[in-house]
Simulated assay, not measured.
Amino acid sequence: MPQKKILIVLSDANSFPLKKPSGPSNESKIVDQPSGFFLMELAKPLSKLLDAGHEITFASPKGQEPKPDPNSESLLAFAGNFYERRRENDLLERMKRENGFSTPRKLSSISDEEVQSFAGVFIPGGHAPLSDLGDDKELGRILGYFHRENKPTAAICHGPYALLSTKASGGEFAYKGYKITCWSNAEEKVMESMLGGEVEKVETALMNAGAEMVEGVGEKVGCTTLHRELLTGGNPMAAEELGSRFVRMISV
């Protein structure tokens, strides 16, 4: 397969807003809940892209070093598989040495001319995108190009929240009417019970913007959804399939 350039967009945030009850009157307050990218949702598709020989460029709104979601580095997240966790951490250490992972490009530094050189764009999950990707105009500009040109676009879990950035750049949601799978409201409610607070729902936000949400048993066990140029998955279990399908899309 000929080498192609792939853009991976990450959040700069290492936390996301969590609304928690406070005080005897049960008023709410917003706290910063630690987060970042979800390790396997980045590492598994990234590994497949590299194995296929593609060139990776990392980018974020401000070009800050991406941080992993602490929960995604736990052995629980890997079902106790120590070796799998080590492989994925080793991969990111390699990216720090070879691909500038610690110093991603600022999205604003990617010109309209340069964005045309990328064959695909991928946005991993973790709660961090809730903090800064949904309203980023530069990301909206880039995604708008991929949408207009029907070029492979992939996002997983909370990553599809970033698709809302197309409203910030153009005033209209580019993916209105698209079938999209993301971290579901039901899954988020489980997280809310663990965190003791309320989280903005990606599924609701996308549905309100005009997307047709695909949610159910298939989404829970890692199935992905492809509609036109957009490939999405709902949770970490979808990372393997999403990576494989994305590589196939790029090869066409």
Rank of each mutant, 00 (worst) to 15 (best):
F101Y: 10
D112K: 05
F101A: 03
F101S: 06
E138Y: 00
D132G: 02
F122W: 15
G100F: 05
P124Y: 15
E114L: 05
E138W: 04
E113Q: 13
L130W: 06
E98Q: 00
D112A: 10
V115G: 09
L130N: 06
M95V: 07
S131N: 14
G126T: 06
G134N: 10
S102E: 04
L130G: 06
E98P: 05
S108L: 01
V115Q: 09
G134T: 13
Q116M: 07
I110F: 04
Q116S: 13
F122A: 09
V115M: 11
L139S: 08
Q116P: 07
R97H: 00
T103N: 03
R97G: 08
A128Y: 14
D136P: 00
D135R: 03
F101E: 07
S131A: 12
F118V: 09
L107W: 15
Q116K: 13
F118N: 09
E138K: 01
L133C: 15
L130Q: 01
N99S: 09
S108Y: 01
A119E: 14
A119S: 15
L107Y: 04
E114T: 06
G134C: 13
K106L: 11
S131E: 14
R105E: 11
A128F: 15
D136L: 01
F118I: 04
D135N: 10
F118H: 02
G126Y: 06
I123Q: 12
G120H: 09
S102T: 10
R105F: 15
S102V: 01
D135Y: 10
P129Y: 02
H127Y: 08
V121Y: 07
P124Q: 15
R105L: 12
M95T: 07
S102F: 01
S111R: 05
E113T: 12
N99Q: 11
T103V: 06
D112C: 03
F101T: 07
L130H: 13
F122V: 07
H127S: 12
F122N: 02
